[in-house]
Design a protein around this nucleic acid. Structure first.
Lengths: 112, 112
DNA sequence: ATAGCATACCTCGCGTAACAAGGTATACGG
DNA sequence: CCGTATACCTTGTTACGCGAGGTATGCTAT
């Protein structure tokens, strides 16, 4: 369980969210802004993608959330669980693998 | 038309098929084998993905097909049309962009 | 001959993920 | 007290990727 590889190339939202959460606890809105910021707008997770993704991941036991009041704001912070960390390792490896695969084809002017 | 960016990160089948066809005319089965071969099995397009994709792309005017008899085999060869070439340029740029975006996040142990 | 395998094409139906659009509520500055 | 930014959420649609299955032909070995 929590061990499937859905579509080989989709699931980037899951990958980048987990990757950010590996560094530190963050809340939804913050994740959305960080993704835009760090990737220089190459990536952009709409809230209609982000929030459902967070809920699904939590339901699958990959994330844990806790409600906190900070700066007069109620926020839901998420962090990785151990299964989530394990899954992140696998997702990262899959990404690199398939990314290299795509590059190998893009950079093949003359092929066999 | 023939100008949409579907899901930001899906459409890899379309990208790699067009990328191969940019080099030379190929037929479906050959594409499937080439993708496995060149990517060293990092990528694998099942026929349930490949053939529908080819049909869709042809319907959208990105590919043209012609039936040929070769080596006692009937094959359907596909090649890029001018709109297809233009679209390939865009898809490639999108791929690089989003690929770099993902890497920027994966490689961010300490972030802002 | 003929069985079996590789080649070569195809379709149907499912699950699910990405997305847009819309909705609620609170804090804060002017 | 109004607008904007923050912060969360859901619903409905779409379409993509995929597995499973189906057809037909040519080659090779028995």
């Amino acid at each position: 369980m929590a061990d499937r590889d859905p579509t080989l190339m989709a699931g980037i939202p899951e990958l980048i969210v987990m990757s950010l959460l590996a560094a530190r606890e963050m809340y939804g809105y913050e994740l959305a802004r960080s993704i835009n910021l760090i990737s220089k707008n190459a990536l952009s997770l709409g809230e209609g993608v982000l929030y459902p993704a967070l809920h699904t991941m939590e339901m699958r036991g990959l994330l844990r959330s806790r409600c906190m009041r900070m700066d007069g704001r109620t926020r839901i912070y998420y962090r990785l669980t151990p299964p989530g960390k394990r899954r992140l390792v696998r997702l990262k490896a899959n990404w690199r693998r398939m990314s290299r695969g795509v590059e190998s084809i893009l950079g093949t002017p003359i092929h066999v």
